[in-house]
Simulated scan of single mutants.
Amino acid sequence: MSRGVGVTETIRSGVPEWTLEAFAGLSLLGDLLVIVPVLGLLYIVDVGQSLFRDDREGPLCSTQTALLIAAVFGGLALVVLLKATFALPRPPAAWHALEPSEHGFPSGHTMAATVFWGALVLWSSIGRRSSRFAVSSAVVVLVALSRLALGVHYLVDVLASIAFGVVYLGGIAWLARERPLRAFGVAVAVAVVAVAVTGGSSRALLALVGTVGGGSGWWLLERPPVRQRLVSTVGPLLR
Rank of each mutant, 00 (worst) to 15 (best):
M111P: 00
L122N: 03
V115L: 01
T110Y: 06
P106A: 06
V115C: 01
H103M: 04
T114H: 02
V79G: 08
S107W: 01
L81I: 05
G104V: 05
W95K: 09
A77R: 07
F116Q: 03
F86H: 03
V80W: 03
A77Q: 02
E102I: 08
T114D: 10
A93E: 14
K83W: 01
E102G: 08
A119P: 15
H109L: 13
G104I: 07
L78G: 11
G108Y: 12
L88K: 00
L122C: 00
P106F: 11
V121T: 10
R90A: 05
W95E: 06
F116L: 12
A87L: 01
L81M: 09
H109C: 14
A77E: 00
W123K: 12
A94N: 11
F105A: 10
T85H: 02
F116I: 06
E99C: 07
L122S: 09
L82P: 11
G104D: 11
V80G: 05
L122K: 00
W123D: 00
F105Q: 12
V80T: 12
E99D: 12
W123P: 03
W117V: 14
W123E: 04
T85W: 15
T110W: 08
S107V: 02
P100A: 00
A84G: 02
L78I: 07
L122M: 01
V80F: 11
S101I: 09
G104P: 07
S101C: 07
A87G: 01
P91R: 05
A113N: 07
T85S: 14
P91Q: 08
A112C: 14
A84V: 11
K83M: 02
G104Q: 08
L81Q: 06
W123V: 06
A84W: 04
H96D: 07
T114G: 10
P92S: 03
E99Q: 14
P106W: 05
E102Q: 13
H103W: 15
A77Y: 10
A119Q: 10
V80D: 00
L82S: 04
L120Q: 13
A84F: 12
L82G: 03
A84Q: 15
P106R: 09
L120M: 15
T110D: 02
E102T: 14
A97R: 07
A87V: 07
L120E: 04
G108W: 02
L122E: 08
S107M: 05
V79F: 02
W117A: 14
G108C: 00
L88A: 13
E99Y: 03
L88V: 09
F105M: 12
S101G: 15
G118M: 12
L120C: 15
H103C: 07
W117K: 14
F105L: 13
A94G: 01
P100H: 02
A93I: 01
F86A: 13
A77T: 02
G108R: 04
V115I: 15
G118A: 13
V115G: 01
